[in-house]
């Protein structure tokens, strides 16, 4: 039985109708212009400096940074590795997380001939990815190509 996600249940979705923009952004520009940022809980400077060749997509509401996803190439370019994603809680109901995931999937088709996405997750942190079709193997969530295409179809235009 799926657990009810208390973390999202009481979020007031006041951002409906906002024009959210998504951009691929250079790490240096991101750190210079948008970091540090009190709205985020992860230390993204730390995430990026510890990751091998990360790339970034960011989501903006106007000029305000509201979401970040980092990814890189997997071994032998057979998959793309989603390193981490964070979206300000009040934007979860705008499908910003889903839209960022869709952008990583689409971009990964440039890296790999077939679009496999892997996310290494902390114990119990896989719900969002599983809800979007990812399959959990231990601490890995995998998006198979057919599921990846569904995510793109559904969320890339957001």
């Amino acid at each position: 039985m799926r657990q009810f996600d208390l973390s999202t249940s009481n979020i007031l979705c006041y951002n409906l109708g906002m024009q959210i923009k998504y951009d691929q952004i250079q790490i240096e520009k991101f750190l210079n212009k948008y970091w540090p940022n009190d709205l985020f809980t992860l230390d993204w400077n730390n995430v990026l400096s510890n990751s091998k060749d990360p790339q970034l997509f960011a989501a903006f509401d106007g000029d305000k940074l509201i979401g970040i996803v980092a990814y890189n190439e997997g071994i032998d370019k057979t998959y793309a590795n989603l390193i981490n994603m964070e979206v300000i809680n009040s934007y979860w109901c705008n499908d910003v997380r889903e839209a960022l995931l869709a952008r990583v999937i689409q971009k990964s088709s440039d890296i790999c001939s077939e679009t496999y996405i892997q996310v290494n997750v902390k114990n119990g942190d896989s719900q969002f990815y599983e809800d979007n079709g990812g399959v959990l193997f231990g601490n890995r969530v995998i998006f198979f190509p057919s599921v990846s295409q569904e995510v793109i179809k559904k969320y890339l235009s957001r």
């Binding site: 510890n50 990751s51 981490n84 290494n120």
Partner: peptide, 15 residues
């Protein structure tokens, strides 16, 4: 923690 150096390095080494 998910974004910690240990976590990220563990995922990279594991993969």
């Amino acid at each position: 923690a998910t974004g910690s150096a240990d976590f990220i390095q563990a995922t990279q080494q594991d993969n």
